[in-house]
Design a binder for these strands. Structure first.
Length: 572
RNA sequence: UGGGGCGUCGCCAAGUUGGCAAGGCACAGGAUUUUGGUUCCUGCAUUCGGAGGUUCGAGUCCUCCCGCCUCAGCCA
């Protein structure tokens, strides 16, 4: 695998002529008008309260991609304004994930908590301008006073207290004089606004909680709406890209920045978040999958988390490619998982070394092959990459082939092993089945074949038609491996859709993980490193498990199957 | 029922002075192939949520209607 940086450069060059999106039109326009001194500066602002998933990857690729395309900058900023939900463990995993995806924020790693003091001063400025006030209403009362979607709210009885009093109260809130929930600082806007966000939104709440970075220095913490625009402003962000549900917050984002003196005012732009078929993106539901042990953890290879996808073996470049292909727009959508799979296959077809592994083995004896003889055959590592080189694999009188590659009686289009029919053993010889053995239960236990010594390497010049080619592993040389076959986590395209009252866990796919213990792999695989990706010839793309693989006990994860025209036909 | 958004092929998605519907995925045929893989051809929206209107000409402009998403945390 090549480094992320090189991939990025290649992508940049290929970017010429790529489809545009509405955000780029906005930026082009701003640049044309000389807005922001012609700078482009974005940011990816995760809250460190959970693991990143492929939906975040879309946002990361968008923000860093826009910066790259316009020779701008993109910051990584943790939006850590809520101490009770955030943990340091998450900042570590997020940093790891963004790096793994291939992006670099250089020295621009920021934390909202670094701006707490500045934010406090800005809040004081608003109070002085009589645009914010301390409210003594409790949470329930505030909700009642807020009104509903169709009816206006009422003003708090504390709304018109003096600037001096609010100033004093706010300072004492900070000093920790009041219990949690007893007071808040609110912006003084319009309790009758048709936009609920403008009905005197809360700017600060009292929280006697220890923060992962500021410890116990603060007993008040800023709310998202107040904090986010300030963070963007302080960092000189030009385009603050977020998801659709913040569209209603934009007037408030703008209001705060307009009512502060001499601050930089970034432009908020909203786009539709990613949804993918057969999986979920909600943090809350993913957390349930982990907590209720439906999966083995945040990095379970079936999870849409970046940690899970990394463990599964999905190349980061294929995720970037995916992000480019799905585009950016404002329409709600749910992308077909097949689109991601296609990106993964395209990458792996080019980059994954081919090896032979028999997942469901049955023994074949080549009756006319000499006993106690081993031949070292040459095999190319990747027909799509000349530089991948060749390797040598042992061949002997007894080999394993895939159980499903043999049929006693063949249907019309089946061109694998059938009694009396000649097939090719990849890289080895042509063989013809002469006999087979079954046990009392009627299960196939052994196949007998004869080989043609003149076809070494798997080829003859006489124009013989050999339609079927099988993968195989030499019995005395085979190593045992555990292979985990992964499939969709859910059986339903949109498990989130709650048509009836059914819980999404009811749509969990019982076959999302099938573990095979008795797989036979070519001996070279013992030496592979954890996290290495391969194509198991004819079976799919696999990755040695980054946590559990050892040469004593090799474990492989299936990343994605091969495209399979035969199986497809079968289903019809 | 108030506000904000969105509706172009099965799924994404281009369409930016109104000028004759990109591309990808999926799907279907065919060719090549020591992976039923790859690659390569070919096909796949007389039509843009619907109805009217303006115009020589409309996915793009106007009007009305329909559908979907979203907002009433001291979460982000």
């Amino acid at each position: 695998m090549s480094s992320g940086k090189n991939n990025l450069n290649t992508e940049k060059e290929n970017n010429v002529g790529k489809p545009s999106n509405f955000i780029k039109y906005i930026i082009d326009d701003d640049l044309k008008n000389g807005k922001n001194e012609s700078r482009v500066h974005t940011r990816f602002p995760p809250e460190p309260n959970g693991y990143l998933h492929i939906g975040h990857a879309k946002s990361i690729c968008l923000n860093f991609g826009v910066a790259r395309d316009y020779n701008g900058l993109c910051n990584l900023r943790f939006d850590d304004t809520n101490p009770v939900k955030e943990e340091d463990e998450y900042v570590k995993s997020i940093i790891e994930d963004v790096k793994w995806l291939g992006f670099d924020w250089e020295d621009r790693l920021y934390f909202a908590s670094d701006y707490f003091e500045q934010m406090y001063e800005y809040a004081v400025e608003l109070i002085r301008k009589d645009k914010a006030y301390v409210d003594d209403l409790n949470a329930e009362q505030i909700r009642e006073y807020r009104g509903t979607l169709t009816t206006a709210g009422k003003e708090s009885p504390y709304r018109n207290r003096s600037v001096e009093e609010s100033l004093d109260l706010f300072a004492r809130m900070r000093a920790g004089e009041f219990p949690d929930g007893s007071k808040v600082l609110r912006a003084k806007i319009d309790m009758a606004s048709s936009n609920m966000n403008m009905r005197d939104p809360v700017m600060y709440r009292i929280l006697h909680a220890s923060h992962h970075r500021t410890g116990d220095a603060w007993s008040i913490y800023p709310m998202y709406d107040w904090a986010h625009g300030l963070e963007d402003s302080l960092e000189g962000i030009t385009h603050s890209i977020c998801t659709l549900e913040f569209e209603d917050h934009r007037p408030l984002y703008d209001w705060f920045l307009e009512n502060l003196d001499g601050v930089h005012h970034p432009q908020q732009i909203e786009f539709a978040r990613l949804n993918l078929t057969y999986t979920l993106m909600s943090k809350r539901k993913l957390l349930r999958l982990v907590n209720e042990n439906y999966v083995s953890g945040w990095d379970d290879p079936r999870m849409p988390t970046l940690a899970g996808m990394r463990r599964r073996g999905i190349p980061p470049a294929s995720i970037r490619d995916f992000a480019d292909r799905i585009g950016v727009a404002k329409a709600d959508s749910i992308v077909d998982r097949a689109m991601l799979d296609s990106c993964i296959r395209e990458d792996l077809n080019k980059n994954a070394k081919r090896v032979m592994v028999v997942l469901d083995p049955v023994k074949v004896v080549i009756t006319n092959y000499p006993e106690n003889t081993v031949e070292e055959l040459t095999a190319e590592n990747n027909p799509e990459d000349e530089n991948a080189g060749h390797r040598t694999i042992p061949f002997s009188r007894e080999i394993y082939i895939e159980r499903e590659d043999f049929l006693e009686e063949a249907p019309k289009k089946f061109f694998r092993m059938v009694p009396g029919r000649e097939v090719r053993l990849k890289h080895a010889y042509y063989v013809t089945c002469t006999n087979f053995v079954k046990n009392d239960a009627g299960e196939l236990t052994e196949i007998h074949c004869e080989y043609d010594p003149a076809t070494k390497g798997g080829w003859s010049d006489d124009g013989r038609k050999v339609k079927g080619t099988l993968h195989w592993v030499s019995v005395p040389h085979a190593i045992d491996a555990e292979v985990r076959l992964y499939d969709h986590l859910f059986t339903k395209e949109n498990p989130d859709e709650s048509r009836d009252e059914r819980d999404f866990t009811e749509f969990l796919n019982p076959d999302s993980l099938v573990t095979l213990q008795n797989c036979k792999a070519e001996p070279g695989l013992r030496e592979c490193t954890p996290g290495e990706r391969f194509q198991f010839l004819r079976k799919g793309y696999f990755c040695s498990d980054s946590k559990e693989f050892t040469s004593e006990k090799p474990v492989f994860n299936r990343i994605v199957t091969m495209r399979d025209a035969w199986q497809k036909k079968d289903k019809k």
